[in-house]
């Protein structure tokens, strides 16, 4: 079914010239979008000597896999992987779970001045995190949560973006279904779990992924609220190397290797989930 819809949306006539043009433009777009990644990999495999050469080579003279070992040793990356994974997963679960409940409440449960409360929540999307840095640090300090997983999990969990997305999605659901479930005597918990959630699975996958990305990639907050290497996450590990560039040195080969440590797991995760995401949507969340 997915392909039939796709065929309708696109230009249906099978003109070989059009097909060639489509492939060519896609290829060009991918090369443009992929170039930085290519350069990241190439740079990470060069020797410092080759790196200093000019003009730069498009492919390393010899592939220096040892760079990855050097980069790995430059920060406690093993521990940082564990930390990133644990705090990323926990914060995502919390964030998505709370957002689901809240979005459902806003979409389907009566409450005085509901729209006002919704706007109050959505307005927080416009607050830059940098503004909350100091007050939240003070709060965590009072809770004695500095340098704990709590600090990396709980404060980022209250996020308006997933609430917004879920709310948008819930509003698109056919209200007849909800009414029917209500008529059957289902409570809100059951409706959310049995009716709304199954129909919103693709959006759930997407939001989960975006939330996880946000946690995985966050730099400033983990740097500020963790004091010890045992509590730190991967992006902070990259800072161990970036530091040297500020001093004037340029270990770009190591920096790119460390950057790949951060990027590769997320790319793998993404490749797996992406299929499910698109498939899920075609299976008919929006169509019902």
């Amino acid at each position: 079914m997915g392909s039939s819809v796709a065929a309708h949306v696109g230009h249906t006539r099978k003109n070989p010239l059009t097909t060639a043009a489509v492939y060519a433009s896609l290829l060009a777009a991918c090369m443009l979008l992929g170039l930085p990644f290519f350069w990241m990999v190439v740079t990470s495999l060069k020797s410092p000597h080759e790196l200093a050469g000019y003009p730069p080579s498009w492919w390393p003279e010899s592939l220096r896999w040892g760079n990855y070992i050097d980069a790995w040793r430059s920060a406690p990356f093993g521990r940082m992987y564990v930390n990133s994974l644990i705090t990323g997963l926990a914060a995502t679960a919390l964030q998505v779970g709370l957002a689901l409940l809240m979005a459902y409440a806003f979409a389907f449960i009566r409450f005085p001045a509901r729209r006002f409360w919704l706007l109050l929540v959505l307005a927080t999307m416009m607050i830059p995190d940098e503004m909350k840095l100091v007050p939240n640090y003070l709060t965590l300090s009072r809770l004695d949560w500095i340098n704990t997983y709590w600090a990396l999990i709980v404060p980022p969990a209250a996020h308006a973006f997933p609430v917004f997305v879920f709310y948008q999605q819930f509003r698109m659901l056919p209200s007849a279904l909800i009414d029917a479930a209500k008529a059957d005597g289902a409570g809100h918990g059951r409706i959310l779990w049995r009716v709304v959630l199954p129909m919103s699975r693709p959006v759930l996958v997407a939001v989960t992924l975006v939330s996880f990305l946000g946690r995985w990639n966050d730099f400033l907050w983990p740097l500020i609220v963790t004091d010890t290497a045992t509590m730190r996450t991967l992006p902070v590990g990259l800072a161990y190397l970036k530091k040297q560039a500020e001093e004037g040195a340029s270990p770009w080969h190591l920096m790119m290797a460390a950057a790949l440590f951060i990027v590769i797991p997320i790319v793998i995760l993404y490749s797996i989930l992406q299929k499910q995401f698109v498939e899920g949507i075609t299976k008919g969340a929006i169509k019902g």
């Binding site: 777009a29 991918c30 979008l33 992929g34 930085p36 990644f37 350069w39 990241m40 990305l213 995985w216 990639n217 730099f219 992006p235 990259l238 970036k242 920096m255 790119m256 950057a259 951060i262 990027v263 997320i266 790319v267 993404y270 992406q274």
Partner: peptide
């Protein structure tokens, strides 16, 4: 096409 988005902004900027 989707790779850039999943890349940490810090990493993307460095690259």
């Amino acid at each position: 096409a989707f790779l850039p988005h999943v890349t940490t902004t810090a990493v993307a900027a460095l690259v």
